[in-house]
Amino acid sequence: MTNAEIKKEILDILQAIAPDEDLTNLKDEVSFRDQIELDSMDFLDIVMELRKRHRIQIPEDDYIQLDSMQSTVAYLEPLMKDVVA
């Protein structure tokens, strides 16, 4: 996946977790939590959805990397480069 495709996938996951959120104006460099209503349970779901969809395992210590779109894409880039979009 390219970075643009990873971003699209993350948006898709966020939409699945929070169907009522309008994500069109989501800012890449701002923390998800400051823009969408996500509690810790929802946050875990980002990790779980990545595992479900792409078999990607993210260790608990790395969860902080999934703070904003920018940091998430950067973190996932090496893990997802071989994933077919």
């Binding site: 929070a18 209503e37 509690d39 349970m41 929802d42 779901d45």
Partner: peptide, 19 residues
């Protein structure tokens, strides 16, 4: 409907259900 905070909203999100 549309409330984002609170137990009901969270439960719906977690179960992937709608209001």
């Amino acid at each position: 409907k549309g409330t984002k905070k609170g137990p009901l909203a969270r439960l719906l999100r977690q179960l992937r259900m709608s209001w």
